[in-house]
Write a protein that binds this DNA or RNA. Structure first.
Lengths: 258, 258
DNA sequence: CACGTCGTTCGCACTATGTGCGAAACGCCC
DNA sequence: GGGCGTTTCGCACATAGTGCGAACGACGTG
């Protein structure tokens, strides 16, 4: 039985199929026709149409009038928005970030830790102080090379960090990227002690970032507040930026608790 | 059997359940526990866990380490991004919008028609010329009261428009909103003739908007390019704005074809 | 106008697939 | 150690999902 594919095991057939259809359709810039989907999934047409009907009924898929291709529908959009919300990007929190941005004159970021992943929940920037180019709201990679990423790792215990590194081995993004597990662990210890993480040109050249942890009411580290500046300016401003992110993180934590 | 709920009919049970779980979890700001989901859907725990396992395996759901609540996972985020892409918000298209924004000094919008819905695909604005407050990237309501909405309706035939109005009856948003079907149809005819749609204070007070159609290579109207300005400025600038959106729409159409 | 082609629906027969129930194995907190 | 909530497991049943083939319908073309 090839039923149990990857690692897991279970998995309900028709459910899996429906989800895979969603991904397939999402991956196709102009959508897919029923026939294409049936073929790529190796399904009979009858089955395919029934699955598609289900998806369409709930507005996960839609189709242009006249067109025969299925495209992502509005429920997908709604879920996307819901995700943002779950990422804690509420108004009071946004205001904290904005205040930070104004105070230090640098783009401010809110990141949230979810499981082993990191999601950028909100970015507050301006024309004068634009965000880091490749950073968008949504999930983020390269936990070993970003200030908030290291902060997340530091909130886990050694075993969890080791497990994480097995799955996502630390790649060299710049000349300064840390790729050695031991060196990384040392840094994490220091981060645990200081409760602040710094990154200088480890993620992108010429760029530095500093992050402080956001905590839940229970005290768990649930995310981070951070700002980024030009690497050359960092040394002179580090004390000021550290105070700013610490205060920002504290304020966000308070908003969450309340 | 209450199996066939709404209008449709078919619907595959486990598929529907999985999708509903997604929505449920999305609707809960801090996620849900397995038990809560089981209860709200009236399912046995065994079944619930299996469905959840499926969702989790494909990364549609995730859970905080330690926490027992399920939250939306990264696949949802990916789908959201994919949606943006399907909405044609590619780089060359963005540049057209930016150029328009710079040229006329007003926020520029790209909207895409999908089935009966309208999605705002991209907004190009600036501090000096900010976007309309309640307009965000994603699906948009009130087709009868926005310039691009009327443009979409105008691209449909009378029967389709009638069907649309049955489902979404035109609400009065401002004093100038058109709520009469006959009056709306007259406007649509004029829009079909002119190939431009205008809206003055029908959607929001003090605001006016003008939109021109984006066409596919085959000639179908697939979306619109529009700009918004203060209602009081509109009369004096209408000729200029009309030229701008017509040109913008043309350029976007060309980018799509190429 | 009759003919292909493609997209979509329908009917049917079969059993794999999903289901509920109950009980057992954890993991936690008091 | 005794409860309590969460999660996994096993089993037996039949429903729910499946594939196949054929009919239907809408286009477009020769």
């Amino acid at each position: 039985m090839s039923a149990e594919e990857r690692h897991g095991g279970a998995g309900i057939q028709s459910a899996e199929r429906v989800l895979r259809i969603l991904e397939l359709v999402g991956a196709a810039p102009t959508g897919l026709t029923a026939a294409e989907i049936a073929q790529r999934l190796g399904l009979g047409q009858s089955t395919t149409y029934r699955l598609l009907a289900t998806l369409q009924k709930q507005d996960y898929l839609a189709r242009q009038a006249g067109e025969h291709r299925y495209i992502l529908g509005r429920t997908v959009d709604q879920l996307g928005r819901a995700l943002q919300y779950q990422l804690v990007a509420t108004d009071p929190v946004r205001q904290v970030l904005r205040a930070m941005h104004d105070a230090v004159g640098a783009p401010a970021y809110l990141t949230v830790f979810r499981g082993d992943d990191i999601a950028v929940a909100h970015i507050e920037d301006s024309v004068a102080h634009p965000r880091i180019g490749q950073l968008h709201v949504g999930f983020s990679e390269a936990s070993h090379a970003t200030a908030f990423g290291k902060l997340m790792l530091a909130s886990r215990d050694d075993a969890a960090v080791a497990r994480f590194l097995e799955r996502h081995s630390p790649t060299r993004l710049t000349a300064s990227s840390i790729t050695d597990a031991a060196a990384l662990n040392d840094q994490l210890d220091e981060i645990r002690a200081q409760q602040v993480a710094v990154e200088i040109e480890e993620y992108l050249p010429k760029l530095a970032c500093i992050a402080a942890p956001v905590r839940s009411a229970a005290g768990r580290t649930v995310g981070a507040v951070s700002v980024s500046v030009q690497a050359k300016d960092f040394a002179a401003r580090s004390a000021q930026l550290e105070r700013a992110v610490r205060r920002g993180a504290w304020q966000v934590s308070a908003r969450l608790a309340g």
